[in-house]
Design a protein around this nucleic acid. Sequence first.
DNA 1: TAAGATTTGTTCGTATGTATC
DNA 2: GGATACATACGAACAAATCTT
Lengths: 264, 264
Amino acid sequence: MPRPSSRPSPDTAGDPGTPPQTRRSRPVQVADALKTWVVERNMKPGDRLPGEAALIERFGMAKGTIREAMRILEAQGLIETRTGPGGGSFVGEVTADRAKALLANYFYFTDLSVANIYQLRRALEPELAASLAGHLTDDQLAALEAVVATYPEPAQSAEEERDQHVASLAFHRRLANFSDNPLLAFVVSFMGRILTDLTVYRRLYDPPNRELYEKGLAYQTDLIAALREGRADDARAIMRAHMETAEALMQRQEAQVLRRFFAE
Amino acid sequence: MPRPSSRPSPDTAGDPGTPPQTRRSRPVQVADALKTWVVERNMKPGDRLPGEAALIERFGMAKGTIREAMRILEAQGLIETRTGPGGGSFVGEVTADRAKALLANYFYFTDLSVANIYQLRRALEPELAASLAGHLTDDQLAALEAVVATYPEPAQSAEEERDQHVASLAFHRRLANFSDNPLLAFVVSFMGRILTDLTVYRRLYDPPNRELYEKGLAYQTDLIAALREGRADDARAIMRAHMETAEALMQRQEAQVLRRFFAE
DNA sequence: TAAGATTTGTTCGTATGTATC
DNA sequence: GGATACATACGAACAAATCTT
């Protein structure tokens, strides 16, 4: 049964002014078309896209091609898909987690050092703290205090020291998410994620430095007080000092950032 | 011709300890498996992955399923695919541009204001300038001077003012890419991209403010001199002052960040 | 509970396009 | 130009998930 092969040739003569540069596959074309379609109609997360059958008809392409296009959009977090009646594809909000995972893949190939990350933390987190001073609700302050309360005694080993550092990072990520600046929140939280998930702590010998530990934790109570009382300059100074301590802790543990892909 | 349908049931009884949470589709499973495969074997960009036929056999799945998996990886920039003899799929480095595009999609749903972006620019770019002072080659300095040379006369209209601001952003992005800190380079460059591509400038009336313009451009020659002579503190101060001027310019023009999806 | 309807998910076989030799 | 090796695309059937009755 010979099919008519009505598929239009990809290089249909015309359009000499726009060299197609890298000729894009059909699934990519469909994905791009759907993207602009969503933008033009100003669709919002949750709005439904045409079903497979409709898209097959509208684009005049086979089911497999359409499905590949949907997987492309899904991989970027732009749509979600459900089976069953009432199912279909829907505009999906790109979550912060997904955006961080996609960005982490970039840094899989472009390695980061602890020093690289702390250059940004030193610049950003003091500003974050200052901008939050006097703007946190009691609930938010309580949430921060709850994190502090989880810390156990001073670390007895490098492993415990690591655990405490991870817990401290949770404090910072929570703080970041209180910011009303989405970009600042994202960048700070992203660094926290990298340091939490991707960092290996090498120092398995030598006793923990108790003084360094206490300096590393005491700041949080002071910081919360400054935040509550709206002392922006104090909050900034406290955070700045802490960043230096934290970086020293990381260096002392010979921490390294690992290479890894992220799924979702 | 009845096919055997030897497809294994997705919920093959066992494994009660690991509730599969959100059951993942087969293409996603394949994509994840390939990701860990690449990481475990420490493969590098350009290394070749098994061909379609091999993957079909290894995973025991149909061609369409495998192809959807490849589109997922491709959409994330993790592989590239070529047709023809010697073709196939290859590990592909995630480019900075692609990472920025994926990240920009996140901020499509999480709107940014000019003030949001400048909060980070004020914190980061002075540090960037300081860290670069005394570390740039003559070629790099010449490249910066070349950008400065492209600026025309003081703007006669808000439109020209916009053009000059865009040109100035190019200066900053170039500077960012000279950094040996990939994270800092990425964040600064990303902000430059957003401001360049996504910003609309509203002020179409009122004469440009000549004094503001001159302050807005003179800094670049001073900055280059400070960079060349290794005066880190000066470079920081110059950049800091410029950031304030630039933000004022944006506010004066009532600039706004647009919503838009990015393709590649 | 069960049956039916609806929509995506997966498979198989075949044909076509593309780059290399 | 022809042969080869690979990805790309098509179409029809079947499977699975999920909602409704």
